[in-house]
Amino acid sequence: MNAQRLAAVRAGAGFVLRRLAAALPNLLGVVVVTFLLTRALPGDPAAYFAGPAASREAIEEVRRALGLDQGIATQFGFYLRDLVQGDLGNSISTGRPVATELIERLPASLELTLIALLLATLIAVPLGVLAATRPGSVVDHLCRVIATVGVSLPTFFTGLLLAYVFYFLLGWAPPPTGRLDPAFSPPQTVTGFYLIDALFALDGELLAAVAGQIALPAITLALFVIAPISRMTRASMLGVLSSDFVRTARAVGLSRTRVLYVYALRNALLPVVTTLGMVFSFLLGSSILVEKVFAWPGVGSYALEALVASDYAPVQGFVLVLAALYVLLNLVIDLAYGVVDPRARFEG
């Protein structure tokens, strides 16, 4: 038995290492591509990074600072060195380091994205399960419709519609501008997530204000990803329900709930976990649009403000940080998959 434990631990460690090793090329690819993007700027990159109003001397300054007067390999070396030091350049509009500004704004974006994912999962998984257990029922048809309509929704449009209906017409939602009504001061920063920090602060009123503010943008984002999650849950649950091992579970007389939840659902969620990678891709992309619609002070609107001002360092930094975050999220998903599926841990 001890030998077995040991083998399991070894397999687990091997699995983690393999996943890490698989994530590395992706991270490297992301770095190379973002580097190439900084060189792809039409015209003179130095002029772009220096900003529209820069003098000739300023441009030369930037050129030297970025190493643009060196060979491409050397430039990449500089780029890597800066990255390792956490240096993403400075924003021209604010004059502050991009890295600092991104870090300040990242919690707002993450909070929005994660709440949306949570919301979408809480709705989509039960919906998919209901649809699969009652094929042909109203829920099943609803699930199909949502799956097709959901992915057809332009998030920026649904966001506006929701704001119109729930703010302008019904007055249920606060004005769609920002994370918190200016009448409140933000909770003391613990996690940077206002919802959690407001909980820590034990301030009910503040919590309600924060929740009210995040509700519409989170719902907007969630609506978009309910479709892929429910579709996947339904398909995978249908497959699992007609599988041999569910038949066995029924044949030995296990109760319906046990068959559904312990035997079928746990297995059905495995492919759903795998699609979370794609879901995150959608979420992170759409969050830019939603942040713009709701004036959400996250990294997306930061990048957009910079874009309008032709301030490129923040945009490049944003792309890099989001891509790195995405690689990291995929790694977490992979590791989580290994926790729930023993087969993944043992694969060579």
């Binding site: 991270l27 992301v30 973002t34 891709s281 992170l284 992309g285 490129y312 792309v319 989001l322």
Partner: peptide, 24 residues
Amino acid sequence: SRLADTIMAFPLFVLAMGVVAAMG
């Protein structure tokens, strides 16, 4: 395959945004 994987390593809309921002 590495090329495809590298593109997929980005949140796709973010990559598209970065490309247009960089190329004009």
